[in-house]
Design a protein around this nucleic acid. Sequence first.
RNA 1: GCGGGUGUAGCUCAAUGGUAGAGCUCCAGUCUUCCAAACUGGCCACGAGGGUUCGAUUCCCUUCACCCGCUCCA
Length: 606
Amino acid sequence: MADPKATALMEKIVSLCKRRGFIFQSSEIYGGINGFWDYGPLGAELKRNVKELWWRQMTRLRDDVVGLEATIIMHPQIWKASGHVDTFSDPMSTCRHCKKLVRADQVWEQLPENAWAQAVAELCPSGHVDSARLLGWAKGKGQRVAPNLALVRNPEVTLSWLAERVQQNPAPLETKELYQYLATEQFPQTGLVTPCPHCGGELTAPRPFNLMFKTHYGPVESDDNLCYLRPETAQAIFVQFKNVLETSRQKVPFGIAQMGKAFRNEVTPRNYTFRSREFEQMELEFFIKPDEAVEAQAGAVAAVDAAGHPGEPQANWGWQMWHKYWVEERIKFYEGIGLPRTTLEEYWQKPEELAHYARACVDILFKFPFGTQELEGIAARSDYDLSQHERCSGKAMGVFDEELRTAWGKLPKEKQDELWKRYFEARRKYLERTGEVPEKAAITARTNADGLAKGQYIPHVIEPSAGVDRLILGLITHAYSEVTDTDDKGKSETRVIMKFHPRVAPIKIAVLPLLKNKPELVKKAQEVFALLRGEMNTFYDEAGSIGRRYARQDEAGTPFCITIDFDTLGEKPELLNTVTLRHRDDGQQERLPIAELLGYLLPKIR
RNA sequence: GCGGGUGUAGCUCAAUGGUAGAGCUCCAGUCUUCCAAACUGGCCACGAGGGUUCGAUUCCCUUCACCCGCUCCA
């Protein structure tokens, strides 16, 4: 994966980003801080444009999505309910020999899959130790497959501890215990050692890697006021779901959109801004009816068959259609801001990769120079999130659907029973997963299913969740291009052109008087500048030769430059009040009346 | 967190145990009629801290950041 060409390209991009003011290292004058980045003037405009386009497309231009802006610090129990407190603290161990990082909770799952561990287990059937065969293996094959295992490095000593154990307690060893003994060389000093699954070496004691940033609310630090910086924006949407529902005059299916900062104490921030510790997300939680409700109302749930965008939402869409719909909508968004489909990849997570509550998850990946990496995940999360908050907060998170109740009443009895049963099973399964005793889970699930018949349900969720900063990085790496010109003297020079889509470009247009020592040109240029700047981000520049100024704008990614020359002033009367408009990507120019500029430019940048 | 590499001006790179030099960029001026022109002048650097030394950018230690691996996923 470490492609030297890709690394060289990234270095050039990083250098350009600093030179032109897209991205700076945070706190640079104090030596920087790992995992944090700032946006300079051009980067700030770029990011603002992207966020505004997302907000516009996801909420303002839709009838069925409304916005939310919640706080970064929220009630700590939210992160209990969401599972982050538990799942975001992985205990990690390092192998003292091969230096690999291993998740401590996965060591015992990984071990039996490795060749050396299997071999050792076979030498000691059912946990009965056979020292002679172990010794033979250690001096032979073991040298290759588990070079750092204590048994291999120092078989006599290692086996002596094992022999002592067998002498004291003749019962056969569990495989786990066997592995530990074979990894232990200095028993009195270290106690039983856990072996590295890769090489058999000694693992360090597990250290907790808590990925959530902790802080305290109120002036006194104590365990009572511990709280977290949110590791994702999604949970705020779930916990405010009822408030939004009641104030927005929306009905399921509808969505709540939010953009904002999130924080994760990444083990290794890497690849420039791609994995930062402070980052921004753009998330939509789109709430839909459970399939049982859709089926009750529409007769049947639409089947997903055709590839491509499924078109306008329909009443008979179940979660699969809605999921497909949002995948296609999101890809359309990326295409609309200049990332062609060829630069993107869809990755449908395999069933075994899914979180236990997820029905499906599609990652939209972008081909970064350093590898194809995720920009956005679109997850079908069932009714897990709202259910969790209902259970943990004790507040009802369900909705009442008058039309469902009416439709239900008209269903034949067999259909009612069938749907009731399916909903009941789904709810029971969820409740049992949370650790509820089976009898109680069945009772609650029964209540839930009875509720469905009365038009009540907990909405399911489709979640398109995008990382803003990695998208910005994607736009920058995709825009980066070089052209090499050779002049008359044979001197060649490489210039950088940032080919941003006009909709996201930080500066939309530069206004340039051809010469700065001619007051008439400057005056006219200032007039044109004043005309445009209220409508779009416009840059005025009179310093340096015209070619130099074009080159500067190319590096900033400005799609258009207009030049005020003597024809603008009427040197050729028929060209009075016209300007040359230069296109960034090919350097082509055209002549346009000043009066037509806005009409020409605005559609291109919106 | 561990291992390997790197750290000199805004960028790309020099030199040196005796206080840093170039090209480009940037700024100002002269000049300039469309793609980094020329000329003149100017700003700006040894990542940070400690040690060895009469003296450290140079040698040593620590630390920080970046790049490459091991893990992660918006």
